[in-house]
Amino acid sequence: MKPAPFDYVAPRTVEEACQLLSEAGGGATVLAGGQTLMPLLALRMSQPFIIVDINRIAALQGVSKVSGGTRIGPVTRQNDALVDPTLKQALPVLVTALSHVGHHQTRNRGTIGGSIALGEPAAEMPATAVALGAKIEARSVRGVRSIAAEDLYLGPYMTTLEPDELVTGIDYPEWPAGTTPVFREVARRPGDFALIGLVGALGVEDGRITRAGLGWFGMGATPIKARQAEQALLGQSVSGIDVQAIAELAVADTAPFDDHHASADYRQRVGKRVFARALAEALDIRQAA
């Protein structure tokens, strides 16, 4: 478990990093927190010619309020984000989801952008970005573009990012105060990737659902937006929601598979229950408030 030989560069600016990625012609890998990359290198499952370490680029770090929402720099450490007062106020469900990412020790190094760019389908951060409608800013020597999170993922560890592109920011839209967070995760052990994960937010005004963003993780080859359930919830009066029926619709959008830890059948069967429990609980809390 020793990596194959590679070159290593640690640029100080985004421009420099993009230049390096461009020159590498697809042979480069970006190193952020390294919590996935380092094991993959050690197992020789990843054998890049050059590693571009972006940890020294100050512009890629930190959380800021921007017009229309919140921006997270991709090299922001998960543990820093977890205690960030801006995030806690603006995106409480993101903070809840973060507390389930790996373990305290891995969160000290792991980054928000690293997790999002990697695209592990059972991870919390990609699904949270999809559910909340985040946009991913990608930059290269060719220019800048903004990718809707739900358009980013093609399959496990496969994204629409080009090899020369660097994630330079994650933009989360504003979810107004009073938004109800929804989060549930079923994992074999705390810190493991999810067997079933549900994350999202519901906007409620005057007893009606006005906005719904719900995403699954661990329920298919990519994070999955529960589009049918979102549609069905919109405009509904909270008191009249048929939780079971919505859960049925939510699971209909998933496409899980069998693996070493659980069958696809288990994931859908339990996923429906988890969704129903989470939705009922979220709305009860809302009603009681």
């Binding site: 705390p190 493991d192 830890h261």
Partner: peptide
């Protein structure tokens, strides 16, 4: 072997 790392070979953690 279907478990080649501790991601798939699940030892009990202190939380278990």
């Amino acid at each position: 072997p279907t478990a080649a790392t501790y991601k798939d070979y699940m030892l009990p953690a202190i939380s278990d």
